[in-house]
């Protein structure tokens, strides 16, 4: 039997042991971030986006990219949106 064939057999056994091993083990890594059920996930995404928009808006204003009028108008609209999202999250039992 050549070295190549022996090495191939050893490789096969190692592969089977390594891949199928977890199906018979109890101590396994904890997978995955928790996924919010139902409509809560998208609402939390919307909250994150709205807060980021607020941050971007303030940064743009501090860098002189917006007039005071545009800043006030946009801030009012995003703040209203944030309040609505937070209310929705509370309604669905989430932590706002």
């Amino acid at each position: 039997m050549s070295i190549g064939i022996v090495a191939s057999l050893v490789l096969s056994l190692l592969v089977v042991w390594y891949v199928l091993g977890p199906l018979f083990e109890s101590a396994l890594p904890n997978y995955g971030a928790a996924v919010q059920p139902g409509t809560l996930g998208p609402l939390l995404d919307s909250k994150e986006r709205a807060l980021r928009s607020l941050k971007d808006l303030e940064m743009d204003f501090s860098m002189g990219k917006l007039s005071q009028e545009d800043f006030d108008q946009s801030k009012r609209s995003i703040s209203t949106e944030v309040a609505e999202i937070l209310a929705e999250i509370r309604k669905h039992g989430g932590e706002a």
Partner: peptide
């Protein structure tokens, strides 16, 4: 069906594909 044991088996399979192709 995403039990940790199954995901771990898939993960190890994915790692081994790279290892065997490297060989």
């Amino acid at each position: 069906r995403a039990l940790p044991s199954r995901l771990e088996s898939l993960r190890r399979g994915t790692l081994l594909i790279a290892a065997t192709l490297g060989l």
